[in-house]
Design a protein around this nucleic acid. Structure first.
Lengths: 232, 232
DNA sequence: TAGATTGTTAATCGATTAACAATC
DNA sequence: TAGATTGTTAATCGATTAACAATC
């Protein structure tokens, strides 16, 4: 009898799209829309309706043939599947520019995420207040997190310190790590880790200079492309 | 005769790996290593040597059978291919927490990126200094960028304002946009755009809770996995 | 009923991996 | 020469897209 849930083998790209479907459904629910078809979502998201239905099929049957999906129902089911139906507490390692910005981020809104602690190794910073949090000693994270109860760790330290930060987080019982530092971190198999690597994104953008369609001639008014042009 | 360069059809995952190869090569060069084989890079990066050779083959022949690759040579060629051999100036839209953090980011080091301007629409902020930059009126970006000469735009405004920011950037002659706001932006085909969406990354992490191998029993010392465990 | 839309199976596409002749 | 390693071709794998019977 496996610990992992029964539908744990959805492809990674499906999970990323699930998050997009969720955002779309939240907007629809907000707008009071009751029902939506995969074709309507295709128009909103630029994801083929067949792809949407295939993605959902990894997790169950959520719609009614001839009708579509009940927005609130699908929203609730996907929220459950992504485990966003409970609060997730996060701690941040690094109280520099980026760590401070994340700690003060107002865009969590009524999402399930909450920053409950911020840590640094700099004695000049430890003890100072940041937003409404006291900056704590990163070496105390394992003890402090027994009361904080965070399951997510966010790494916002320089590249050289990222692995150490990850190690302390693992010792603190954290099971998911989002790493903003460039470069990979190594974590045990029971811990999930992802990287947000904006330097890499910038480099990839540079590749496309002069490799896309030429710009229209100046003076010629131009219609924006209907599809977001994330280069395929 | 096409404007796009002759080897413009490398798959997207290849471009992302190219950026990883570059980082690896910079470290090797720094350490004074003269020569490296695809097998050695496989060990460092966890990318199969066949994959590395295939990726490089989209752009030319860079190695010598029986020997491997000359580190500095491969580094130079990949830097050219990614167009990182010239300075890229970037402007930031949004002088909030995130915009400030990015403007003050010290990790650009001797990379090819340089922040040359930061813009906001808040009259309370316009005119104030941030690091060594004056916060400018976002509506003036098209004029200001004639002298700033940025080709990259970084969006660090709230989700609701992201599309507007993108539009102003396009009007300003910017050809590559990195969007930190959640949600897609629409840009013309000659502009490259990518998203850095850390809320999405957090949501994907949550999916993996209790869907990975169970943690080892407490008290049992544990070896870290040799491979970074970004969930496949 | 006729039209719409689902969930799923089959076909297609594209990327990764394996294998190997060529070459140092 | 023998051993190592490239660049490339072929095989495999996995994800996307198309098609359609079932159903509202």
């Amino acid at each position: 009898m496996s610990v992992a849930s029964e539908h744990a083998k959805a492809p990674e790209p499906t999970l990323a799209r699930l998050s997009r479907y969720l955002r779309c459904l939240r907007q629809l629910a907000e707008a009071g829309v009751k029902t939506v078809s995969s074709k309507q979502m295709e128009e909103k998201l630029g994801v083929l309706s067949a792809q949407i239905r295939k993605d959902l099929s990894y997790f169950g049957e959520f719609g009614r043939p001839g009708i579509g999906y009940e927005v609130q129902h699908l929203l609730d089911r996907l929220t459950e599947i992504m485990q966003l139906d409970r609060e997730h507490r996060a701690v941040i390692a690094g109280a520099g520019n980026l760590g401070s910005a994340l700690a003060g981020y107002t865009g969590f809104g009524k999402s399930s995420f909450r920053i409950v602690g911020i840590f640094d190794n700099n004695f000049g910073k430890i003890g100072r207040m940041l937003w409404n949090l006291e900056i704590l000693d990163i070496n105390q994270m394992p003890e402090m997190n027994q009361t904080l109860g965070a399951d997510i760790g966010i790494i916002a330290v320089p590249a050289e310190a990222a692995q150490q930060a990850a190690d302390v987080m693992v010792q603190s019982g954290i099971r998911a790590i989002l790493n903003f530092a460039p470069g990979r971190i190594v974590v045990p198999a029971h811990v999930a880790a992802r990287n947000v690597d904006f330097l890499r994104e910038l480099e990839i953008l540079c590749y496309y200079f002069d490799r896309l369609l030429p710009p229209p001639l100046a003076g010629q008014a131009e219609e924006c492309a209907p599809e977001p042009s994330e280069p395929k």
